[in-house]
């Protein structure tokens, strides 16, 4: 079973880091020992989303420079004791790390973890190649918009050309808005999947709660949030990664914003 995944997209701002953190927390909530690696050197955010920014002592650059081992550099999550972070450096650049460095780091961590999730930077240059180098599989994140989908298509092509098996490249659609799809104003999951032609691993509906979770540094899948609809979606994705057959329709149970504001917007909304 594939256990080292790179979370990538090509386009920036589609939610790679949030998905890396939330999915990592979802896997950890199921009892797996998970290591998250922030490969977005110079523009690191994974520690912020996990609420660990004040606990980082060593970064991936310290490992590359031989100051500490990869295992010594890990930060354990304050609530989930089986969730770890290898933080990126804010002051370094992507050129200070090579694909071989990443392979060496992952090789050290590999026997100690059930899953290793590498958060890739946007783009398809050096940072992307570093992040992909040691991954056995890829989770390609896109939003249902043309620029994100076409960039995802480019990234899938690069991953395949780099030798990654097609079955190990899987798609996550983020910020999906079922209400817009119903109105005929958003591409459907089938439209996207048909064009990208890879397995769809999950559909994450758009949710303000994810922003709130980021504000507080507590991924929505952390303890206490398990019953939340979005947490359920990530739980489904985690189970699918572990090989379970969970229907994709279960991700769409959460239909987006409801209530008075949405009700009045639909009646009085002028297009």
């Amino acid at each position: 079973m594939v256990k080292t995944y790179v979370v990538t997209s090509g386009k920036g701002g589609v939610g790679k880091t949030t998905i890396s953190a939330t999915l990592g927390a979802a896997l950890a909530a199921k009892g797996d020992k998970v290591c998250l690696i922030d490969a977005d050197i110079g523009l690191k955010n994974l520690d912020l989303i996990l609420g660990l920014e004040n606990r980082v002592v060593h970064t991936i650059l310290d490992v590359v420079n031989g100051k500490v081992t990869a295992l010594e550099s890990l930060v354990r999550h304050k609530q989930m004791k089986n969730l770890f972070l290898l933080a990126a450096s804010q002051i370094a650049t992507k050129e200070m790390l090579s694909p071989d460095d990443m392979r060496r780091i992952v090789a050290e961590l590999y026997p100690k973890f059930d899953f290793i999730i590498i958060d890739s930077p946007a783009g398809i240059e050096r940072g992307f190649r570093n992040a992909v180098a040691a991954a056995e599989g890829a989770l390609v994140v896109t939003t249902p918009e043309l620029p994100a989908i076409t960039d995802a298509d480019r990234v899938i092509g690069l991953l395949e050309n780099a030798g990654m098996a097609e079955d190990d490249i899987r798609l996550i659609i983020n910020r999906f808005k079922p209400n817009m799809v119903k109105r005929g104003d958003m591409l459907t999951k089938d439209d996207i999947q048909e064009n990208l032609a890879i397995e769809l691993l999950g559909i994450v509906p758009d949710s303000e709660d994810v922003i709130v979770a980021t504000n507080t540094g507590n991924p929505i899948t952390l303890n206490g949030n398990q019953e939340h609809a979005i947490a359920q979606v990530f739980s489904n994705i985690a189970l699918r990664l572990k090989g379970e057959m969970i229907s994709l329709e279960k991700d769409l149970v959460y239909g987006g914003p409801r209530g008075f504001r949405e009700f009045f917007r639909r009646i009085f909304g002028r297009n």
Partner: peptide, 27 residues
């Protein structure tokens, strides 16, 4: 104020554009 202006839905256009961009690009 309450009248909703009818307009074409954009999904069809997005689908056509996506098809033309992506088809054949990744071989």
């Amino acid at each position: 104020l309450f009248r909703r202006k009818k307009r074409a839905h954009s999904r069809k256009e997005a689908k056509d554009r996506l098809d033309s961009i992506v088809t054949g690009r990744r071989r």
